[in-house]
Computed example of a mutant assay.
Amino acid sequence: MNDTGTVPRPTLPTVHSLFSPEWLRAAAEATAGRSPDDGTALRLGLRLTDPPPGVAGQVLVLVDQTTGALAFRAGEWDERPTLTLTLAHEDARLFLFGDAERRVRLFEHGRLVLEGVFLFVFFLDRLLQQDPSGALARLRRCTADAPPATRHRPDAAAAVTAPEDEAAAVRAAAEILPRTMDALHTELGRTTPGAQLHVSHAPSGTDVSAALGSSRPGVPFTRASRPIWYCCAKTLGAAAVGQLWERGLLDPMAPVARYLPWYDGDGRERVTLHQLLTHTSAVPMGLDPLHGAMAAPVALRRELLRRMTVPTGTPPAPASPTGRGGRGS
């Protein structure tokens, strides 16, 4: 109690617009002593399409993937971030402070563009949900219009109730492949929200198909769910190329430009289908524009391909050993 005999009200923190100079100073104080290491941190670039007056339009967020420590730096980037998100100011606030469902929906409304190593989105989402360092909780208190905090449940992925036929398939899979299913259950809510398993082994007669966890917040992962295949799609692509090659409709040693005329100039005319299939072209990989922009419109992804420049001095690819030219399409 104070001198007037009343109980003083707790002092509320001053809130500021996200990425304003005042907010950045408050963020530096809130994360002091817990900054991630520059050499090992995930580098998330946020580029705003509508920065309010006085708000930084470009911010680099350093994220320690082990501890969840954060650091924010406004201005130009000294190197290309691991991930770059181009989005509205309000969407940036939801991405950092919203719950998992709101974060998922940001990738569905068509206004967000992502470039970089898409896989890191999942690791980043987990850190933002769990906030192991408490940095987001401290930052939320000084962020204007921040969405309310939600309690993270480590078993949230496994807590979704699946339809009975899906649950029966999981039980059947656990009887046939108990250790495999135990390993998948261990990863739910830790490294992945959900998983699908299919095993078909003719000699033993084994035929297993099951899905578990969540495909998105509150929605169970089923055998009919459509996951992101990533590199698993390469097997289908290689088989399709092989079938076209057998029919004489395509030559893997031919330049890509024979089949995609717009993929030409700046050395791109020397890149062959075989090089792309075997990862042996001179086109740089990893953080270049070709590897990423997964959440971007098709027109933007094609434009990024058009701007890709092959390093000078790159030798031409070897000629086709078959002599089968393949017709362009």
Rank of each mutant, 00 (worst) to 15 (best):
R138L: 01
R47D: 03
H152G: 05
G189K: 05
T278K: 09
D145H: 01
D50I: 04
R103T: 14
M285S: 13
A146D: 00
V113T: 06
S17G: 13
P284F: 13
P318V: 04
V160C: 10
Q129R: 02
D182L: 11
A27N: 01
P297I: 08
W229N: 14
L276N: 03
V208H: 06
A27C: 05
H109L: 11
R327I: 09
H152Q: 04
Q129S: 03
V170I: 09
L260C: 13
M253D: 11
V219P: 05
H201P: 01
L12C: 03
A159D: 12
S204V: 09
G325C: 07
A157G: 07
A137L: 05
A56S: 14
T14W: 04
A295F: 15
G323Y: 09
D99W: 11
S35Y: 04
G98C: 13
E22Y: 02
A233R: 12
A202E: 13
A211R: 01
R151T: 15
G205L: 14
G33S: 02
T314F: 02
T180Y: 06
E246V: 04
D145M: 00
P148F: 08
S329N: 12
E22N: 10
A282M: 08
R190M: 02
A144P: 02
T191W: 07
W245S: 13
R138T: 00
V208N: 10
T6W: 08
K234Y: 03
R103I: 14
A257P: 03
G313S: 05
A137E: 09
A74L: 04
P261E: 14
E269K: 10
G213S: 11
G75Q: 05
D78Q: 14
D99G: 15
I228S: 12
H16G: 10
L212R: 01
E108R: 12
S35L: 15
Q130N: 00
A149W: 02
A167P: 10
V283E: 00
P217V: 12
P297Q: 13
A69F: 06
L124H: 10
C232P: 00
P52Q: 05
H185S: 02
L85G: 04
V283H: 01
D91H: 13
A167N: 11
R47Y: 03
P178D: 13
L277E: 08
T31R: 00
V104G: 07
R34D: 01
A158E: 12
H89D: 15
L42K: 02
L197F: 11
P147F: 05
A172L: 09
M253Q: 08
F95Y: 15
R43Q: 13
T161L: 04
C231W: 12
T280E: 07
Q58I: 04
A167H: 12
Q275E: 15
A158M: 10
F122C: 06
D165P: 04
H109F: 09
T206C: 08
V63E: 00
C142M: 00
M285C: 11
A26H: 00
L276D: 05
T11L: 08
A149E: 14
P21Q: 13
G286D: 06
P147C: 03
T66P: 01
V55R: 01
R80T: 15
G134M: 06
P51S: 07
V55T: 07
S35D: 05
A224L: 01
D182H: 14
E164P: 08
T309C: 06
E115K: 08
P147E: 02
P51E: 09
L177F: 07
M308I: 08
T49Q: 06
S200C: 09
V310R: 07
R9P: 02
P178K: 10
V59T: 09
